[in-house]
Write a protein that binds this DNA or RNA. Structure first.
Length: 552
RNA sequence: GCGCCUGUAGCUCAGCUGGAUAGAGCGCAGCCCUGCGGAGGCUGAGGUCGCGGGUUCAAAUCCCGCCAGGCGUGCCA
């Protein structure tokens, strides 16, 4: 990328100046190239001389002069100059910019793809909610974040696998089974008490009714424990179907649905435990089995197997990550968790160390929680108490594209209030439509061009020389950088901001430059530019998991 | 108590590997349709970047201390 190339140029210029004695020898910090916010400062700039001033005992301006004298600029660069207090600025050649339009057209749908992750297998695990209830709005955030990251990492050359981890055993499932059993009996007019900490949502009653309708009263004859466990299985299957459907509404699709129970049936749990045992990290205390994480620097030890013999979820997670790293051998694993799991991260990292894995190969993205509200009123979402605003309801009201955009526009670090009233009200003037409108507008222009039988294949892009045209091209060529930034930082919230910016620049161009006009040559050149813009807009929208409409 | 995250315009949020006049959307006050989609363009008002110290040529950005909010700190997940 041009940015990196300029960094290399600067570095070489400094070295050369040092060899010639024009600059004192000093260690070179990492050369940072940035886009100045003020366009008068050029397309790229570096404050390197300011950083070198101290160690070289020279004024930043003098260093900047010396460095710029020694720069061998790449052919794309038109002008290099020095600006106080010690910046080196670069401006790109306009004829090079215009030829970039051709490159974008040639790349087509692959425009924006980079090779950053070539040859690496990444697993992305997200959502992974307990299949004991429908998804609520909060889950939507993780789903959108994960699926967008998957898109971007794929565009960055990684082989990405999206996985949903199904917690199909343990306390919550037992609880779910008992609750469902009670509802089932009640449905058949039998005496039954809900467990005190059971799942009280109305969806449980509907679920029980469905099961009665399809499978009759056959569970009544079973012993209570057996009935609850069989019903849990039937119920989980149905909940998973629902979860899957809701996610598809949001354009979120998984490659693998991985069962927690399979870890125990497939022997992976035993293998992982043996590995820990062999390393001497396991101890028996108070009838329970503990992972001695404190010997690895953790605050305290953690229980793996309770005194009643049942494994904790931490034990499952160990087996699961043993499977991810040592059996499936992913180069890199990304887990997306809610902020309520943040305390689990250090444990997981030390556990990986104990398994002999490289903890850095696991990236955990902590996504701050979503508090749901209706205007001033805060809506508690709890599957057990029952007041749930489901994700599906919100998608039905707000729309998948707008919903995704709202979730994507905030960094995972900041907790967000999802105001249902506001979301509905703003769904009409949600920025997503602004971006999509730009795309639809382009489609409309291209329809007109087609109708007039304009063939732009011989269009000469060197005719694109005015300010609005060049500004637009400057935005278009940022896309690969944005993709890289998102892939490196794992922060997809940069995408919607870029998309909006690109749309703004396009709308402004549109206002100032008539595309289909009497000037045949210029028309052909501008159609090329407009097509390139459409490619970039469609690409960002696709990366964000949204539609790029031809008409609205 | 300790740990993680957050505090930027009226509201919702970007910017945070230190850089040249702090940005966007919504809202507010105006202006622009006898040419390709006005779901648009343009202009303006609006800011002690939570508070106080420190480091630096340079701090919204880094360090320390406060204050406020969220989350965690289970033989729950």
């Amino acid at each position: 990328m041009l940015k990196q190339e300029l960094a290399r140029c600067l570095q070489q210029a400094v070295l050369k100046a040092q060899q010639e004695g024009a600059l004192a020898s000093a260690a070179l910090p990492e050369v940072l190239i940035e886009h100045p916010q003020n366009p008068e400062h050029g397309d790229f700039a570096s404050g390197l001389p300011l950083k070198l001033a101290r160690s070289m005992k020279m004024s930043p301006m003098a260093i900047a002069e010396k460095v710029s004298e020694h720069i061998v600029p790449p052919p794309q660069v038109d002008k290099i100059w020095v600006a106080p207090p010690g910046f080196i600025n670069f401006i790109l050649r306009e004829d090079w910019l215009s030829t970039e339009v051709e490159s974008i057209l040639a790349a087509g749908e692959s425009y924006g793809d980079i090779e950053l992750g070539k040859g690496n297998r990444v697993q992305l695990e997200f959502v992974s909610v307990n299949p004991t209830g429908p998804l609520h709005v909060g889950h939507g955030r993780g789903a959108v974040l994960g699926s967008t990251l998957a898109n971007v990492l794929t565009a960055s050359g990684y082989a990405v696998e999206k996985e949903f981890y199904i917690n199909d055993m343990g306390n919550q499932i037992n609880n779910f089974g008992r609750s469902l059993h009670a509802r089932y009996r009640q449905c058949l007019d039998k005496e039954a008490a809900m467990p005190p900490d059971g799942y009280y949502g109305n969806y449980m009653i509907d679920l029980a009714k469905e099961i009665v309708q399809e499978q009759g009263d056959r569970f009544l004859s079973l012993p209570e424990g057996e009935a609850a466990s069989q019903l849990a299985e039937v119920g989980v299957d149905r909940m998973l179907q629902r979860i899957k459907q809701d996610l598809e509404l949001l354009n979120v699709v998984f490659d693998t649905w991985f069962s927690e129970r399979s870890l125990y049936q497939g022997g992976q749990y035993n293998k992982a435990m043996e590995l820990l045992q062999g390393g001497g990290y396991i101890a028996k205390k108070e009838n329970a089995t503990w992972f001695e994480s404190s010997s690895l620097g953790e605050d305290k030890d953690n229980v793996l197997v309770r005194s009643d013999g049942s494994p904790t979820y931490f034990a499952s997670d160990i087996a699961y990550h043993y499977n991810k790293f040592l059996e499936r051998k992913f180069d890199w694993v990304i887990d997306i968790w809610g902020a309520d799991h943040q305390g689990h991260v250090p444990r997981m990292k030390t556990m990986l160390k104990a398994l002999g894995c490289v903890p850095e190969q696991l990236k955990v993205i902590i996504c701050q929680l979503v508090t749901l509200r209706r205007g001033q009123e805060i809506v508690k979402v709890s599957k057990r108490s029952g007041d749930i605003v489901t994700l599906k309801e919100v998608i039905d009201e707000v729309g998948s594209d707008a919903c995704r955009f709202i979730f994507l526009s905030r960094s995972a670090d900041s907790q967000m209030d999802f105001d249902i009233e506001l979301a509905k009200r703003q769904s009409a003037d949600n920025p997503v439509y602004y971006v999509q409108y730009a795309h639809a507008r382009i489609a409309s222009i291209l329809r007109l061009a087609k109708q007039r039988e304009i063939d732009c294949s011989q269009g000469d892009v060197s005719l694109l020389t005015t300010e609005p045209e060049l500004t637009l091209i400057r935005r278009l060529i940022l896309l690969p950088e944005i993709v890289e930034q998102v892939a490196v930082t794992l922060e997809p919230h940069h995408l919607p901001y870029y998309a909006q910016d690109l749309a703004t620049v396009f709308h402004s161009f549109y206002k100032q430059c008539r595309v289909v006009s009497e000037d045949e040559a210029l028309t052909k050149a501008r159609i090329k530019l407009v097509k390139a813009t459409q490619i970039a807009l469609a690409k960002v929208l696709r990366l964000m998991g949204m539609t790029a409409p031809e008409k609205m």
